[in-house]
């Protein structure tokens, strides 16, 4: 494909997909190891009522009110999950299940009752997003990347995801040691003075920021998949957390690129006429990668203890 076709049509959705995938996979590594991976699922569902409420209040589908609504809803959900877990003395997974299904269902009801027929706000959009629509109209080829006028019209989702990814990566790098130590041994972490409570909450909030920023561009399917599949696949490739992070970034990128290409051209290759949802295909590819890692990864077995020395 020539640059004059690729740059306006595919470059932006592909890059956005990569940024989303990596931004979710990075905190996903810690969430999976902390057995909190479902929080990504929870957050990507609870943003729906937040977005609908923001729409009802402003009457417009504009970015900032919707992002604020989504962020507000996820903060309420995180606090509610923590509250149910503590007051009900039940495990975190059950608390998440209760809160996110209830809030998502509430969002669907709100959406049905509100007059959203003339805007593209619907459940399908919430699930699949619309990666393919991120077309860079003013681009004419690779040269446009250096053309300030053309760059000004680049779909806003791309720079927004780039900033989000940068933020997530900085958080991970800066708090690498506390995250690693407290994920492995929380009791020890506290005795050396780490504030493990705020740190854990910070991790969930960073995951929520990634999920909310990604939601608008790509829908919740990719978000859910990317929090879990690349980190889980990466765990089976290595026994070191540092390497696991690198593998998860690689897998997330691979899923985004392969998924986008397969969604656009896969059906053509097998003789069908229409393309399929890129978000759905990216999530599917990440699932296939996880399956392959589970079958062939070098460290897919749990460490078996050596005989007592």
């Amino acid at each position: 494909m020539s640059g004059s076709e690729f740059v306006p049509l595919s470059l932006v959705p592909m890059l956005t997909g990569i940024f989303v995938a990596v931004a979710c996979a990075l905190p996903g590594n810690f969430l999976v190891l902390r057995r909190q991976a479902l929080i990504g699922d929870a957050i990507s569902h609870v943003v729906l009522p937040g977005i609908v409420v923001a729409f009802l209040l402003t009457g417009m589908v504009t970015t900032w009110p919707m992002l604020l609504g989504a962020a507000g809803a996820s903060i309420i959900a995180v606090l509610a999950i923590e509250g149910v877990r503590r007051l009900g003395k039940i495990e975190a997974g059950a608390a998440m299940g209760v809160i996110f299904t209830a809030m998502f269902a509430g969002g669907v009801l709100l959406l049905e009752q509100s007059d959203t027929s003339n805007v593209h706000l619907d459940v399908e959009h919430a699930l699949y997003g619309n990666l393919e629509s991120l077309i860079w109209l003013d681009a004419t080829g690779w040269g446009s990347l250096l053309d300030p006028e053309a760059l000004a019209t680049i779909p806003v989702e791309l720079p927004r995801m780039a900033v989000t990814l940068l933020f997530v990566a900085l958080f991970t790098a800066l708090f690498w040691r506390p995250l690693k130590i407290s994920t492995f041994d929380e009791g020890f972490a506290r005795t050396i003075g780490m504030k493990t409570g705020p740190l854990g909450l910070g991790l969930v909030i960073v995951a929520a920021i990634a999920a909310v920023a990604a939601f608008d561009a790509v829908g919740s399917i990719i978000v859910i998949a990317m929090f879990i599949c690349p980190p889980a696949a990466a765990r089976m490739m290595t026994n070191r957390l540092e390497h696991q992070i690198a593998w998860s970034v690689l897998f997330a990128t691979l899923a985004a690129v392969l998924g986008y290409v397969l969604a656009g051209y896969g059906p053509l290759w097998i003789g069908l006429r229409d393309s399929v949802s890129a978000a759905g295909m990216i999530a599917t590819v990440s699932g296939v990668i996880l399956g392959l890692a589970a079958l062939f990864g070098p460290h897919r077995h749990r460490g078996t203890a050596a005989p007592t020395a």
Partner: peptide
Amino acid sequence: QIGQLSGG
């Protein structure tokens, strides 16, 4: 890797 160790 720590999982490969015995309890002791």
